[in-house]
C-alpha cells in the first residue's frame, strides 16, 4: 500500500501563488462574480419572479390544477422506483468492482458509465426501438396488451437508464480508497457476506451513499430528454414535471410554466443544501480513511 499524504500548503507557498497586484486579483474575482450573477443567480431569481409576477393565486392555481398534480405524481412515482433500484444496484456494482477481482470488470465499469456518455435522446430512442410498435418486442407486447413506451413503465425505464451511474460512480472511488482490509478482517473473524456488507461496508460508505442518492434523485426528477422521447406527451397521464413546464410554456401560459418550473428550482435548492452538508461529511469520511491508512503505515 502506498502512503497518501495530505499536504496543507504552507504560508509561504500561499503568498507565492497570489503575488499579482491587488487590481489583477480584484478584476479576476469581479469577472467570476459577474459571470456567476449573470448566468446562475439572475436566471434563478427570474424563475421565481416570473412565477409570482401574476400573483400568489395564479401561482398556487398553476401548481394545484389536475394536470400539474398528475405531473408531480408521475415524477415522484418514477423517482420512487428509479432511486431505490439504483441504490441496490449501485451498491452491488460498486461492491463487486472495488472488493473483488473478476473477469469483465472493465466491461462492467464501462457499462455503468454508458448513460453518462450517451445523449438522453438516444437513450429514449433505444426504448422506442425495442418496445415501440415497430420495434423488436412491440408486436408481442401489443398482442398481450402490455404498454411500455408512451406509458408509465417507459418513463420509469428511461429515468433508471439515465440515473444508473450516479450512485455507483460516487461509491467506487470512496470504496477503492477504503480498501478491502476491514472486510478481510471481518471474514477472518467468521462474518458471512451479509454481515460484512451490513456491519462493515455500509457504515463506512453511508455519507458517500447518501450523496449519490441525492444526485440520483435530482437527476431522476429533472430528466427531460430521454423521458420526452418515450412519454407521448399525454396531458394528465404521461407528462412529468419538466415536460409539463415545456407544454405550459408552449401554450403561452408563462406564469404557470414558471410556477411549475419554480417547483423544480426549489427542489434543486433543497438538493443543493443537503448536498453541501453531506459533502462535508464525505470529505470528513475520506479524510479519516486516509488518516487511518497513514496511521496504519506508520
Amino acid at each position: 500500500m502506498t502512503t497518501i499524504t495530505i499536504s496543507h500548503p504552507s504560508k509561504s507557498q500561499q503568498a507565492a501563488i497570489t503575488q499579482e497586484p491587488a487590481w489583477v486579483r480584484w478584476i479576476l474575482i469581479g469577472i467570476a462574480l459577474a459571470f456567476l450573477t449573470l448566468f446562475l443567480f439572475v436566471p434563478l431569481v427570474s424563475v421565481f419572479y416570473e412565477a409570482l409576477k401574476k400573483g400568489v393565486d395564479v401561482y398556487f392555481a398553476a401548481i394545484t390544477e389536475p394536470d400539474a398534480l398528475a405531473a408531480i405524481k408521475l415524477t415522484l412515482t418514477a423517482t420512487a422506483i428509479a432511486v431505490p433500484l439504483n441504490l441496490v444496484f449501485g451498491v452491488a456494482a460498486a461492491w463487486a468492482i472495488t472488493k473483488f477481482e473478476f473477469r469483465g470488470k472493465n466491461v462492467l465499469i464501462t457499462l455503468i458509465d454508458l448513460p453518462f456518455s450517451v445523449s438522453p435522446v438516444v437513450a429514449g430512442l433505444i426504448y422506442v426501438l425495442v418496445f415501440g410498435l415497430q420495434g423488436w418486442l412491440g408486436p408481442w407486447l401489443a398482442e398481450h396488451d402490455l404498454k411500455v413506451i408512451f406509458a408509465v413503465p417507459g418513463i420509469v425505464l428511461a429515468t433508471i437508464f439515465v440515473t444508473v451511474p450516479f450512485i455507483a460512480r460516487e461509491l467506487i472511488p470512496l470504496m477503492q480508497a477504503q480498501g478491502t482490509e476491514e472486510e478481510e478482517a471481518a471474514v477472518v473473524l467468521g462474518a458471512n457476506g451479509w454481515q460484512t456488507l451490513w456491519n462493515i461496508t455500509l457504515p463506512n460508505i453511508k455519507w458517500g451513499l447518501l450523496y449519490g442518492i441525492i444526485l440520483c434523485n435530482a437527476r431522476a426528477m429533472g430528466e427531460f430528454g430521454a423521458v420526452s422521447v418515450v412519454s407521448g406527451h399525454i396531458r394528465g397521464s404521461t407528462n412529468t414535471l419538466p415536460l409539463h413546464v415545456e407544454i405550459l410554456y408552449n401554450e403561452y401560459n408563462f406564469a404557470a410554466a414558471f410556477a411549475v418550473a419554480s417547483l423544480l428550482a426549489l427542489l434543486a435548492l433543497i438538493t443543493l443544501a443537503i448536498k453541501t452538508f453531506v459533502e462535508s461529511k464525505v470529505t470528513q469520511q475520506k479524510h479519516t480513511t486516509k488518516l487511518k491508512e497513514n496511521n496504519h503505515e506508520h
Binding site: Q134, K147, I234
Partner: peptide
C-alpha cells in the same frame, strides 16, 4: 378525453411507434 400535442410529423411517428 386526453390530449397529446407536438409537431404533426412527430405525432404521426409516435402513433406508428405505439402511442395509443
Amino acid at each position: 378525453i386526453r390530449q397529446s400535442h407536438g409537431g404533426s410529423g412527430k405525432q404521426a411517428r409516435s402513433v406508428i411507434d405505439g402511442l395509443d
